[in-house]
Design a protein around this nucleic acid. Sequence first.
DNA 1: CTCATAGTACGGCAGCCATCGAAATTTGAC
DNA 2: GTCAAATTTCGATGGCTGCCGTACTATGAG
Lengths: 112, 112
Amino acid sequence: MPTTTAVRELPHPAREEIRLEAVLHALADPVRLRIVTELSTHGEGEDNGATCSQVELPVSASTATHHFRVLREAGVINQCYRGTAKINCLRRTDLDTRFPGLLDAVLHAAAS
Amino acid sequence: MPTTTAVRELPHPAREEIRLEAVLHALADPVRLRIVTELSTHGEGEDNGATCSQVELPVSASTATHHFRVLREAGVINQCYRGTAKINCLRRTDLDTRFPGLLDAVLHAAAS
DNA sequence: CTCATAGTACGGCAGCCATCGAAATTTGAC
DNA sequence: GTCAAATTTCGATGGCTGCCGTACTATGAG
C-alpha cells in the first residue's frame, strides 16, 4: 500500500459504453429515481453536485451506497470524492448525447 | 361456468393508472424491449397489431407469455383475443399522453 | 366429434436484488 | 495521535424474476 494517495478513483463507463437497458433498470427503482430527480436540481459540475447524505432517502446508509453505485455503473451519475464526502451529479450531457430526450422525458414524468 | 362466452377479457391498467416505474421496469428487459421495438413497426389499432407467435423471441413460449403479460400489466401494450390468436399492440397514445416523449426516446435509443 | 393451433397455468429452479446491521476504512479537525 | 463524520464492505436474508417443461384450455377447421 502506498503511504498516502489522497485520490480515490471510481470506475465509470465511458459515454459510448452506456447501455440503454442498464439505464432503464437503474431508473426503474423508486429510491434511485428519487436520487435522480433530486440531483436534477443541482448542476452538472463537480462543484454543484450533492453528497450522498444530502439526498434524503427512506433506506439505510449501506443501502443508499448500493443505489448510488448502481446509478454510477449504469452511467447515470458521476461520483467523485471530496474529502470524506462523495459528490454526485447527473451525467446530463452524456445521457443526452447517447439517448436524446430520454432523461428529460423521465424527469418530466417523475415530476407529475 | 356459462355455456359459451366467446369473449375473454384481459385486465389492462387505465391510462391514469400507468406508473412510470412499472413502465421503466418493463422496458429494462432485453426480451421485452425487443417485443416493444417489434410492435413499434405495427399500427396501434386492434387490426394492426402482431400476434405473440409473430414476434420472434429467443425464449420458450411460456416465457414469452410471461413477458407479454408484464408489458400489458405495466400499460405498455394492449392485448385482445382474435380467435385462438392474441393481438398485441403498443399503447402509443396512452403512453405519449401520460409520459410525453418517453416512448419515442426509448425506441430511438433502442434502434441504435 | 376430432384434431391442430395458439396461448396459458403451474410448479420448480437458479440467480439477482433490495434491504439491513455491524465492523471497517478514509479523511479532516483538534 | 485521537476522534468524529461520511461512506464502504461484508454477510445474511427474503423476495422477486427469468427461465423452462409439462399439462391444460380455448378456438376454428374439417
